[in-house]
């Protein structure tokens, strides 16, 4: 799955390289900047992965955690080992979190690498107008990956909870991904403005603040708090469900 994620920046870079100049203002933001600075491949790739590709892969991994073991029947043997239900749940969530950290990181790093290979790399002009060196820009890139990783914590917890509800992994995966999409659709309806700050996907695209000088940490902080809330709520739900679950698979 990480390979599939790595393919995205490669696709973008190759496509831009092969086509002639991209007219400014068309396609995803930053796309037109790639030819001037390869580092933007990473930023663009992360941007296009946020709405679907990242939630999809994270949903698959998080939805598979418990339900996958139940589907194989190995859950009962882990529990009689005995693995301990709380411990098993924590290990499974840690696995999902590790993937949520790795996924945007892979996109960013592969993006930077292929960008450096195909395009010139130089100082980057930030949204605030300031200019920073390539090293500093690389740091910002990693910061965005971290922001996305945090953004996916809530979804991972939702997936974990879904996974404790069923013995069919595909069901848990699908419902998690569907929830991610629904959350983004609700976020796009102006009539539901009061709801927006509570949607786990609300701040997903707000990492532009990290491209200012000095870095504006507000959205990072708000997002972290919101994600923390989701982790607490759905972590507790998953715990409550799994601790009393009859393992009949």
């Amino acid at each position: 799955m990480l390979c599939a994620l790595a393919a995205i920046p490669v696709l973008i870079a190759v496509a831009v390289r092969l086509s002639s100049a991209v007219p400014p203002g068309r396609g995803p933001a930053f796309l037109d900047r790639i030819t001037q600075n390869g580092l933007f491949v990473g930023v663009t790739a992360m941007l296009v992965s946020v709405p679907l590709f990242l939630p999809l892969t994270v949903g698959v991994v998080a939805g598979d955690t418990v339900a996958g073991e139940a589907g194989l029947g190995t859950l009962r043997y882990l529990l009689v080992a005995p693995a301990g239900r709380v411990r098993l749940l924590l290990v499974k969530y840690a696995g999902a979190v590790a993937f949520a950290v790795a996924a945007p990181l892979v996109v960013a790093l592969v993006g930077a690498a292929i960008g450096a290979a195909l395009f010139p790399v130089g100082p980057v002009t930030l949204l605030s107008g300031d200019s920073i060196g390539a090293d500093e820009a690389m740091l910002r890139l990693l910061l965005i990956a971290a922001y996305l990783a945090v953004s996916l914590m809530g979804l991972s917890a939702i997936g974990l909870f879904m996974s404790t509800l069923t013995d069919v992994p595909v069901g848990a995966m699908a419902s998690t991904v569907v929830l991610a999409v629904v959350s983004q659709v609700l976020d796009a309806l102006p009539q539901l403005e009061w709801l927006h700050p509570w949607l786990f996907s609300h701040y997903w695209l707000d990492f532009a603040d990290l491209l200012r000088q000095p870095v504006a940490w507000d959205s990072f902080l708000t997002n972290s708090l919101l994600q923390g809330g989701y982790v607490a709520v759905f972590g507790a739900l998953a715990y409550g469900r799994f601790i009393t679950k009859d393992v009949l698979s």
């Binding site: 194989l72 029947g73 190995t74 009962r76 043997y77 080992a81 005995p82 693995a83 301990g84 411990r87």
Partner: peptide
């Protein structure tokens, strides 16, 4: 019995044994 089909027999046993802390 139930196992991880993509692992070898021995690897499956390692995994179940490691499940007990």
């Amino acid at each position: 019995p139930a196992f991880y089909p993509f692992l070898s027999g021995a690897a499956n046993l390692y995994r179940f044994d490691a499940a007990d802390p």
